[in-house]
């Protein structure tokens, strides 16, 4: 099958180009896109992309496949292209490209770090674990599972416009993960850090983040909860 890949090596190329490569799919199998890339790399070892776990839990291989962000390792060909169609692979949109399908994620990580993505509880811990009811723990479901693949934030128009000021869906999902944790005591401090026109309120609720999250998470809903907390605090 024909695979069209975004190619750019800043050392040798003036500008990026889409280059086609013919990949033989063994027995017409329904491979994952990552497997197709590995076959392509066997023919042309200079194709650069990130990958690690190959099972959708490490978040390395987020990319844009025929116009849709996702993880190459858990996206089957049959979900991406119709028979006879070309497979088109591009880097995640909106971030600077280092080479080929590898993007510079610095600003994405910076936004994550901004929300203090760690538990804050200044009371001395007990000699065993801190207790938490199953109901309180259930508040973290749908939040803690994030794998930092950046599929959501790079699919968000508000993040494209203001990647330095709008925290973006991934970072905000984590902000809420700690706001929602019954063990965390820094709610006021966390909300104060988010209470400006950009950090949270640039979310326009278009839900393009939730549409592409490979883990089925819903950052828009988490952002809604943060908004409600900020508004409640303001009244």
């Amino acid at each position: 099958m024909l695979v069209s890949i975004y190619r750019y090596n800043p050392q040798t190329d003036d500008k990026p180009v889409m280059r086609d490569i013919e990949v033989e799919i063994p027995g017409g199998k329904d491979l994952m896109i990552l497997d197709v890339l590995e076959l392509a790399k066997r023919k042309d070892s200079s194709i650069a992309y990130r990958r690690s776990c190959r099972e959708g839990v490490c978040g390395s291989d987020g990319m844009n496949m025929n116009g849709r962000n996702g993880l190459a390792c858990i996206t089957p060909l049959s979900d991406t292209v119709k028979p006879g169609q070309k497979l088109v692979l591009r880097p995640l949109p909106g971030l600077p490209v280092i080479r080929d399908l590898v993007v510079d994620m610095s600003i994405f990580y910076k936004q994550y770090e901004k929300v203090k993505p760690y538990l804050i509880n200044d009371e001395p811990p007990p000699t065993i674990e801190r207790l938490q009811s199953p109901e309180d723990r259930a508040q973290l479901d749908g939040l803690y599972e994030c794998i930092l693949c950046a599929c959501c934030s790079t699919n968000c128009p508000s993040f494209w416009w203001n990647p330095d000021k709008f925290i973006g869906p991934a970072g905000l999902l984590q902000a809420y993960r700690f706001l929602a944790d019954s063990r965390d005591t820094a709610t006021a401090e966390r909300l104060a850090g988010l209470n400006d026109p950009f950090s949270v309120f640039r979310c326009r609720g278009v839900m393009s983040c939730a549409a592409v999250c490979p883990k089925g998470l819903n950052p828009t809903r988490a952002i809604g909860h943060i908004r409600a907390m900020l508004i409640r605090q303001g009244t």
């Binding site: 760690y118 538990l119 674990e129 801190r130 207790l131 723990r137 973290l140 700690f178 944790d181 965390d184």
Partner: peptide, 20 residues
């Protein structure tokens, strides 16, 4: 060592009594 991880925030599943 496990209690330290919990204190750092590891979201362990819980029993009815709130333990890990």
């Amino acid at each position: 060592t496990v209690f330290e991880l919990e204190h750092m925030g590891l979201p362990f599943s819980r029993t009815e009594t709130g333990r890990i």
